[in-house]
Design a protein around this nucleic acid. Structure first.
Length: 517
RNA sequence: GGCGCUUUAGCUCAGUCGGUUAGAGCAUCGGAAUCAUAAUCCGAGUGUCCGGGGUUCGAGUCCCUGAAGCGCCA
């Protein structure tokens, strides 16, 4: 069976779960569910990054061990994901033994390949503030006292900062510049969306500098093999999660590697599109097939921030809306890859027009008529007319086009295509006016029309199942008249036209998406 | 400062290789229908395709230039 490996980033435990984490993880889940329906052997990974100075300091400030702090935040993620119907196959923690083994193995591979060397890392340090600043940060903040780089001052307290030198291991990133450029050029879909690809390309072409990959200033992390006063810095530690979760290095044959897609936020694009491929090249491992950087959400037109206090908390959203509604809105409202705005009026508008009025009402009116005119039982299909054939052709086109969209992570277009199918269904009802057929006693035509309606509803539900697993299992329950599970379906067994048979009984409908007032 | 992107209907956006009358959804207005969650369907549109210049038989599309907004890098 063909495999499919999709990942989210590992989320940093210094931060509570927010809308951004929720967004990436839902997108990954929809891909995973869609591929499972398509019969692929799916591995969907998410997890947390627990290491680093910030977590160590936050733990110290609270007088607890870093692992205790991490445990608390991990619990927040692990309890949130099921509420959002996230179907991840694994959850990787960087503090786990299997991850440490993977990271240290990666280090040794890089070392054996001759791509690691020891040198000194330079930084600026403000003694009173106990804060480290990079030269770039200071220059950006305009902290040059006399315009010369040896007279920097601290952006916070404005006092002079001193240059410190720290022993550090380096990775020869510069040696991979040409190969990375070649790879990006030879694989147009490697980095998506295209605008990000261009950014990365110009960044790499402008010249790569070697990367500092260890620290001695904190200890909460994976020790460098053979030099325990060094801790492996975030790049190698975090990125290697995608392999350690698969059993690297124990498993020589990594079943799911290379990943089909790493979903990431645009803030970590460079690490995934440049550092990670270089590391994999050095370690002589295949590169992921695609890295997709999605955009940011604003809330009611404003940037989310702690100081404004307008950050949307997933738990609060879930009190107001079904997980399915949030999943649908997030993926429908904004093209994946672009920034978007989360507004409650937009959510309500989309919900009412697309889910309540179009999908929900088509289900309701169709099953109501079936109940009213035929006791809920499907009849046999008589002679098909042109409009019936057009409807079937449209369903089949929808299935192909949605598949194409999902291959490109174009969620909003996939949903738009399904909505077009639903509109076609509503048009079909008007064109055929089953109530008139019932009045005329034209049973043969009435049965044919009702059958076509129920079949397209079933196939529409199947396409929407990855997006709204809860609502769509309800929809399928109404159609199939039995309790169903999302994972019992597949495109192979259920995706064809005509699976429902004459004599099949459907349920009396209940509104699936009640209108929001 | 360098590189790149964007600018199209009231709003959000699509528009392939230069080719008939520039499209979709939402919102608005008019009509039809009564199966349905007052949902649905049909119809009507409205356009300085950011400005200016150029290439061409022909430009939303290609080239030059200006403006505004944004991204990455420095």
């Amino acid at each position: 069976m063909e495999s499919y490996y999709v990942t989210t980033p590992i989320y940093y435990v210094n931060d509570e779960p927010h809308l951004g984490h929720m967004y990436t993880t839902i997108a990954a889940d929809v891909l995973a569910r869609y591929q499972r329906l398509g019969g692929r052997d799916v591995f969907f990974l998410t997890g947390v990054d627990e290491h680093g100075q910030k977590v160590q300091q936050a733990a110290e400030a609270r007088g607890i061990e870093p692992i205790a702090l991490a445990d608390q935040v991990v619990e927040r993620y692990q309890s949130l994901w099921p509420e959002l119907e996230i179907s991840n196959d694994d959850f990787i923690r960087t503090s786990s033994e299997r991850h440490k083994a993977g990271v240290q193995a990666m280090w040794r591979r890089l070392e054996n390949a001759g791509t690691i060397y020891k040198d000194f890392y330079e930084d600026w340090y403000c003694v009173p503030c106990e804060a480290y600043w990079t030269e770039t940060q200071l220059k950006d903040a305009g902290c040059l006292e006399s315009g010369a780089s040896d007279s920097m001052h601290c952006p916070d307290c404005k006092r002079a900062v001193e240059k410190i030198q720290e022993e550090s291991y380096f990775f020869r990133l510069s040696a991979f510049q040409d190969r990375i450029v070649e790879h990006i050029k030879a694989n147009p879909d490697f980095i998506a969306p295209a605008s990000r690809r261009n950014e990365v390309l110009s960044f790499v072409e402008s010249g790569l500098r070697d990367l500092s990959i260890s620290r001695t200033t904190f200890s909460w992390g994976v020790p460098v093999p053979g030099d325990e006063k060094h801790v492996i810095y975030v790049w190698i530690d975090a990125l290697t999660n995608y392999l350690s979760a698969l059993g690297f290095p124990e498993q020589e044959q990594l079943k799911y590697w290379p990943a089909d897609v790493h979903l990431i936020g645009k803030d970590i694009l460079r690490f995934h599109a440049v550092y990670w491929p270089a590391m994999l090249m050095a370690a002589d491992l295949p590169l992921p097939k695609r890295i997709y950087a999605h955009g940011w959400w604003t809330v009611e037109g404003e940037k989310m921030s702690k100081s404004k206090g307008n950050a949307l908390r997933p738990a609060d959203l879930l009190e107001q809306y079904d997980a399915d509604i949030l999943r649908y809105f997030l993926l429908r409202e904004v093209p994946f890859g672009q920034d978007g705005d989360f507004s409650f009026t937009a959510l309500k508008q989309r919900y009412n027009s697309e889910l309540a009025n179009d999908v929900g009402n088509l289900l309701n009116r169709s099953l109501s008529m079936l109940k009213k005119y035929r006791g809920g039982v499907l009849g046999t299909v008589a002679e098909e007319q042109e409009c019936d054939r057009a409807l079937i052709a449209d369903v089949e086109a929808m299935q192909r086009e949605v598949a194409d969209c999902m291959d490109r992570q174009a969620f909003h277009l996939a949903l738009d295509r399904v909505n077009a199918m639903v509109r076609h269904g509503n048009r079909y009802v008007e064109d055929n006016a089953p109530w008139a057929l019932a009045k005329q006693g034209n049973d043969a035509r009435l049965d044919t029309v009702l059958y076509h309606l129920v079949e397209i509803l079933r196939l529409v539900a199947l396409q929407l199942l990855p997006f709204m697993p809860g609502k769509m299992t309800q929809m399928l329950s109404q159609i199939l008249d039995r309790p169903v599970q999302a994972d019992e379906f597949s495109f192979a067994a259920d995706g064809g036209w005509g699976v429902l048979e004459a004599g099949h009984q459907c349920r009396k409908p209940e509104p699936l998406f009640p209108r929001m007032e």
